[in-house]
């Protein structure tokens, strides 16, 4: 992203308390963004597994069920591996 980069001198012009507030704000937004990026990854993965045909703009019940199960089993896989 080259368009609107943050000017570092802006940050150093802030008083200590405001610097801390901005840092905390950045941290909170970054962690929200991490969750969103995970959802992008899961959607990509599960959409490939569950949606094979486009003949409507709605998900049928089978596809919905599949997406749900896909996410649950992926997270279970991750948890099992971490616990090993």
């Amino acid at each position: 992203m080259s368009g609107s980069q943050i000017d570092p001198s802006l940050f150093t012009n802030l008083d200590a308390q405001s610097q801390q507030e901005v840092a905390r704000f950045l941290e909170a937004e970054t962690s929200k963004s991490k969750v969103q990026m995970s959802i992008h990854q899961y959607t990509d993965m599960c959409f490939k597994k569950c949606v094979k045909k486009i003949d409507s703009s709605d998900l049928n019940s089978g596809e919905q069920q599949c997406l749900q199960t896909c996410l649950d089993r992926f997270l279970d896989t991750n948890i099992s591996i971490v616990k090993l």
């Binding site: 969750v35 995970s38 959802i39 992008h40 899961y42 959607t43 599960c46 959409f47 569950c50 949606v51 486009i54 003949d55 409507s56 703009s57 709605d58 998900l59 596809e63 919905q64 997406l67 749900q68 996410l71 649950d72 997270l75």
Partner: peptide, 25 residues
């Protein structure tokens, strides 16, 4: 038409997974 429907389906999938993921967290 396919692209349009696919987009709708994909974004609906995103919403379903988003809800379930946040719920599981």
């Amino acid at each position: 038409k396919c692209i349009e429907q696919c987009m709708q389906k994909y974004m609906k999938s995103w919403n379903i997974l988003s809800q379930s993921y946040v719920k599981r967290i």
